[in-house]
Amino acid sequence: MSDLESRLSGGDEESPLLSIRNLSVDYVGRSAVRAVDDLSLDIRRGEIFGLLGESGSGKSTAILAALRLLPPPAVIVSGQVMFEGVDLLTLDEGALRRLRFRRIAVVLQSAMNALSPVLSIGEQITDVILAHEAASRGDAWARAGELLELVGIEAVRLRSYPHELSGGMRQRVGLAVALALRPALVVLDEPTTALDVVVERQILQRLAELSHARGFSILLVSHDVSSMLEFCDRLGVLYAGRVCEVAPRADLESGARHPYTRGLLDSLLSRHQAGTRLVGIPGAPPDIARPPSGCRFHPRCAFRVDLCEHTIPPLFAPAAGRALACHRPLQLVPPDVDASVPPRRTP
């Protein structure tokens, strides 16, 4: 492994669970649009990783593409996705199918549409069990009941249909399905977008508990910065299809080094005392069909220099488990937060 590689994955620990390298994804059309550009990141065993970015930043695209679940007109044009020793991008359908949900499970955005309206909840949980394991129907249904209880739903609901459940419950069902085969990695794409804050917290909390108890990794894709900060061990920030920064939560809270990350964190209300000015990031996200030259963030960056406009900043690893793509990374102490007030921490 190269130096970068070992740094990205955290150094001398065991090799990462999921390792994405140089992934690029295009949307084909009149002309191809590069939605994800040269993305590299690692997920370690047992960690909760949050992939953060605005809408249209390419975060869902990247992860779904890595799992080969991105529908047309998307095409993967380069990269490598190593999972437990195999490159997912080179597997054939049969091999992928055997992997799915047994080793990697997905909870799709908006569980409202992710459950078939004409099948009962129980049927949709048991069919994944029955597809991968030689269990009897009775066993499968019993396990399905346990899974529902695990995520906080009464087992009697197995016979219900999706439309009879609330949004939050359906999301939990999605989670139950994902956990059915005890996978090593659970990926959640925007799990809480359509839910209210209370339900959101409950679900993420449960998820974190289960992860710690059972030892599986979680990859959360979301634009909800505060939730991510609360629950994730490490976060990766994506902007216009490229990685800006990857760092452990503590490091980000004490000082993000990429101007965009800094801007994101600063704009969180919780970080400011009452009476301080609200800070945002000026400008608007770029049109990925016509991205800015060089560093894609440069038009909105207060710290840019000429280099930023011409050259794409390479991804480098300033420390173990961290990554940064910036020509002029910021200093470690953020100047506009009162250093005497510790950042809000959740228990």
């Binding site: 199918r97 949900f101 799709l108 549409n113 459950l115 994944v128």
Partner: peptide, 10 residues
Amino acid sequence: DYVLLAVAKG
């Protein structure tokens, strides 16, 4: 989406 999930379920 539910068809995608069905495929994702293997």
